[in-house]
Structure formats: C-alpha cells, structure tokens
Design a protein around this nucleic acid. Structure first.
Lengths: 212, 212
DNA sequence: CGCTATTGTGAACGAGTATTCACAACCGGA
DNA sequence: TCCGGTTGTGAATACTCGTTCACAATAGCG
C-alpha cells in the first residue's frame, strides 16, 4: 500500500470525522487511537503528527460539535423573523443533526466529557450555556414583541426547550433508532408553542392545587 | 488488619453502594474493580466471591437504579389521588433522588450502558420504558377524570415530563452543583401543569404560524 | 471442640491502552 | 535536480485493567 501524504489540515478533519463516527457505535469509552487510525487508513502513531495527544483530539471533537449546534441556532434565526417560528425550525434542525450523527449525542452525554479533565467539563458546560444563551436570546426577542409570555424568565424556557430534545434523543439512541423522534417532536412542539403564548396566571388551574 | 468475613448478601450491597458512589466523581469509565475493592476495604479479587464478573456487577447496579426510580413513581401515586398532584410530587421526588446520588445520573446517561453489551442496553431501555409507562399511566388516569387534555397521547406527554428533569440534571452535574435544579423545577412545573389542562386547539395560536 | 464450606489474599497473567522514537518515504520549493 | 521539512511506519515502552488461582483464615454447624 503506497502511503499518501496529505496536509495536516485535511488529516485533522479526517481524524475528527473518524472519531465522531466511531463514537456512534463504540461510545467515547471504546474510542481508541488504534481504531481511529484504522478508520483513516493510518498507523496509530501517525495521529501524533496532527494532534499532540488524545486529549487535544477530544477537545477538537468537542469544538466541532459546538460549531454545529451553534450554527443550527444561527441558521434558524437567519431563516425567519418570527422568534417562535425560529424556535420551531431550531427544534427540527437540532433533531436532524442528531439523527444524522449519533456520535454527537454521545459527546454531549458521555461521562468521559462529563468527568475526565475538569477543564474539558468546563468547556462542555460552556457549550450548553452558549446554546441556552442563544435560545434564550430568541425567547427574549419574542417577549419584546409580545409573542411570548413575560411571566417566565427566558433562561428557564430555554432549558424547557432543551427538554423537548434531550429525552427524545436519548430514547432514540437507546432504542437503536426505533423510537420515533420525529413523531415525538411533532406531538411536543404544539404543546410547547401553546405554553409560550399562554396567558399568565390562569385563574382555574391555580385553585385546583391541593395544599397552599 | 484482621479480615472480616461477611455474608454475600451484605457484601453485594456494599459493593453496589461503592460502585454507585464512585461513579459520582469518576464516571462509569473510571470505575475499576480495584477502586471499588479499596472503598469496601477489600482486595480486588474478593469481589469475585460475590459477583462473577464486572458485567454482572454493572447489571446489579442498573437493577438498583431501576428499583429506586420505579419506587419513586409508586410512592408518588400512593401519596395522593389527584393524578396531576402525583406528577408534581414525582418531579420533586425524582429531582431529590438525583441530587442525593449523582451516580444515578451517570448510570442513566453513561455510554458504557448505552453501548457495551447490547443486552445491557436493552435493559436500560427497559428501565426508561418502564418509567415512561408508569408516568403515562398516571396521565391516562388524569385524562379519564378530565383533569388532563385528551388531544395528546399519554406517552408523548410522559416523554415531555421527562424533559422537565433530564436537561436540568445534566446541567446540574456538569456545573458541579451550581445550576439550581430546584429553581428550574419550580419555574418549569407551572408551565407543564398549564399544558396538561390547556384547551385543545386554541384558535389564535394555530393561525399565526407562517406557512400551511 | 473440630470440620467444612465460605470468604479473603496476594501474586501473576494477558489483553488493551496511549505514547515515543529512530527510520523511511514523500512533497514542494530553490 | 537536489534538499529539507513534513508526513507515515512499525516496533517498543510503560501502564492500567479485569480476571485467575493456589493458599490462608474464618464462621457456623454438628
């Protein structure tokens, strides 16, 4: 086999792609340098020409995931002026992203990122925080335009929005694709949309609570 | 150090407890037989007197988590007759459970359980399915009593309920306890409760959508 | 008390891991 | 064309991990 020599930029992309693809069925735990190298068509040692260590590689993977998720927010905002419609499109786009690449899900939930170096955990938290900030921003714009209720702070609604996605994607991965995320999204969105525009403090529901 | 000899039932409990506790700060990845043994006060090889393999140990841990979560549902139902109130209490109880034991969260999301043996993944999926069935059961009862809307199927609402919990717990773990899950639950619950009793097909919101 | 199954020990093995290094092949520019 | 830095190789290193096994100590039963 003649060895091809490619620029380090191209190789870095290939390596990150291979890592993400391997996470799909092996998880972050089963992600070995040998497996990545095999998928790229490499000897394991060649990876070290393009990344100083496995940690640096994982950081790069995390960065790529961040770009994709934040890109989804930007794209959704760019497509429409209506904040509520932007959220609906973001939901759709986010689901599509997860469906196209299961490894993405692993990155967000795997304990190698949740534990491991505290520094990397911090970066993952930053990823979530950035995403939630973006969503909260859209929500605040909706509140300004009186399309979204004012009596709940935007950040809490943003976490709730994430709740439309996360359990569905977990079930989807766990069931090996048998859980219908699209149907769940279709059922969940109208409910969430109603919640956004609901009248603050409806008189009936509050009185029905048991105590205090 | 004189070696104490204890019954295998007691030891199994100790080992499972140690494993769950270690997951809190090491994750499932960092969970080694040596670490578990050290925490129990053991030599690593002694674990094999009570569990045939690490896989069997992890299965037992999973089973314990299942018992706790399903127990939370049963306890919440037993406390009140009102289905909506039962859900509110379950939310509270579930959050408390996660707060008391971060390892529980790891079990539910770690990729060693999501990947690894397909058999174990199946069991984790069964755990989720059982939980959702329990929640859906409560919801169906609420629908029968006209306390919960009929135009959405109970299972979708159950997944939505899970969405109140999962993102919050992920953020809580990731932020090392700085994210206020209690506050998030307090903000999210009233919104979810309103959604449950919302009138089907409100005329205003549907017409506002952009296309078709 | 004495016997036997149960429980704990410590050393060892083998498989898998990330990483290093001396060396070889290649590419682009002078 | 030749040269130097870049890129790929394969063997070797040092480590951790799960698991096994021959042996020792113990507990509880008769």
């Amino acid at each position: 086999m003649p060895r091809e020599k490619l620029g380090t930029g191209i190789r870095q992309d290939q390596i990150i792609d291979a890592a993400l693809a391997l996470m799909t069925d092996r998880g972050v735990r089963g992600l070995s340098m040998a497996a990545i190298a095999r998928r790229v068509g490499f000897a394991p040692s060649a990876i070290y020409r393009h990344f100083p260590s496995k940690d640096a590689l994982l950081d790069a993977v995390l960065e790529r995931v961040r770009e994709r998720l934040h890109g989804a927010i930007a794209a959704s905002r760019a497509e429409t002026d209506d904040p509520v419609e932007a959220l609906r499109r973001l939901l759709e786009r986010h689901m599509r992203l997860l469906r196209q690449n299961r490894g993405l899900n692993r990155v967000l939930l795997a304990d190698d990122f949740h534990v491991g170096h505290p520094e990397r955990r911090q970066r993952l938290l930053g990823l979530f925080a950035g995403y939630l900030d973006g969503v909260a921003d859209v929500i605040r714009e909706g509140q300004r335009r009186h399309r979204i209720r004012h009596d709940v702070n935007a950040r809490s609604l943003a976490v709730l929005f994430l709740g439309l996605i996360q359990p569905a994607s977990v079930l989807w991965v766990l069931s090996d694709g048998r859980f219908d995320v699209t149907a769940q999204a279709r059922a969940a969105w109208p409910i969430f949309e109603q919640s956004l525009s609901a009248h603050p403090a409806p008189p009936r529901a509050a009185a029905a609570r048991g105590r205090r």
